[in-house]
Design a protein around this nucleic acid. Structure first.
Lengths: 210, 210
DNA sequence: CCGCCAATCACATAAACATGTGCTCTTCCA
DNA sequence: TGGAAGAGCACATGTTTATGTGATTGGCGG
């Protein structure tokens, strides 16, 4: 029996969902609230398996509610429920440890399926939400790997520069003379098209060279 | 009618999938290949709506195949198909523009549903895959924000340092004297606990200060 | 076998940086 | 109302970087 809690401000929807879920085999609704003002205490008291959390609620919204629950409990599964698949909320929800993110227009049968999946450790999400997530992901990793053809030795030097070593320190770290360090660094600058240490360091991070 | 292409090295599975998909209303299989060696040409020739691509194939694997298709066509929907929900492949697939990622053990009815969703612009994925994705996401954004209490002016200066400006350039950019730039930077170093420009730049990236 | 290139070292010079000390203003708030 | 903190400026000194020119060695491929 999967124990569910519900946070949804709209009375019709709250009742409808309660009836749907509570009336289905294998599911029970422990409680349903119209806002998240005391969500942390309530979740601790009822100890549900899954919490369905509307995002757009007056007062404490769903994202804030999510944070409060996660502050005291990282086990309970939390499914975010929303009308729109807008970018910012999806992002915030994911970042704060939501287990899934589904649209309100989801068909009842699907919804039960999603709750089931969440309870068993999966991360259900509507396909349109998943699209958002993938898009964000590829944005994050869009930065491209130009190669720059750094030699092994040059990569070592660059790594040490990034770690904040001075020429002198690099020399003693690598058992070479400081003048050799200079040559390597000059070469690195040419290859990266920069002309200062900090630009090289910045580029190393931006282009994920190391 | 959704036009599907198939890349799968296992003959049984290839035949099975072909029959399943081709035999279902609203779907047709244009072609099925056992490897991706000429995937780019083949996809260009058949112009499918959706490509089902196995990841583990001898010769050109699915990820490589994905890349090749994406090099010439960014519209066709590509669903990756695999036995394991292992981290690295999921990551690579997403990064290279896969539209969805599903497990081979997915039930036939589900599979058709997923193809349908992909064709209409969604990003279907098995719940276990979605879990992986969310996990990666929160890892990426796990980096903690120590604040360091940089003032607005100090943040500006740090930003310019990161962008490769010299003290002189910063001074003229901010309409202040070079000595003021020095004071700001000394203060920044104290707050970040570093003592060189490149360390500050590195820290700015690592801690996502800007 | 010769040339190319990475890696090593040397010397020299000018510019940029790091650090210290000390001085005004203004704003904010206890 | 007085002190803390941010912002601005000045001068001084020593260190580190950036850049140039040039040389030696060993490996690899045509």
């Amino acid at each position: 029996m999967i124990k569910v809690m519900l946070y949804e401000d709209n009375p019709q929807l709250r009742e409808g969902l309660t009836m749907l879920i509570d009336g289905s085999d294998g599911f029970t609704v422990l409680a349903a609230y119209k806002n998240c003002d005391n969500v942390a205490d309530e979740v601790e008291a009822w100890k549900p398996d899954v919490v369905l959390m509307d995002i757009d609620m007056p007062g404490t919204n769903g994202i804030e509610g999510l944070k409060r629950v996660r502050a005291v409990n990282s086990d309970v599964k939390i499914l975010m429920l929303t009308v729109f698949d807008d970018n910012k909320n999806v992002f915030d929800a994911i970042r704060n440890g939501a287990n899934g993110y589904i649209l309100k227009k989801t068909a009842p049968a699907k919804l039960l399926e999603y709750i089931q999946e969440a309870a068993s450790g999966g991360a259900p999400m509507t396909a349109s939400i998943a699209t958002q997530v993938l898009k964000m992901f590829s944005q994050i990793n869009a930065s491209q790997n130009e190669n720059y053809n750094l030699s092994d030795r040059e990569k070592q030097v660059l790594q040490l520069l990034v770690d904040g070593f001075s020429y002198k320190m690099i020399a003693s770290e690598m058992f070479i003379s400081i003048d050799t360090v200079r040559s390597h660094i000059k070469k690195i600058y040419e290859k990266l098209h920069v002309n200062s240490k900090s630009e090289a360091v910045a580029k190393a991070f931006k282009d994920k060279l190391l």
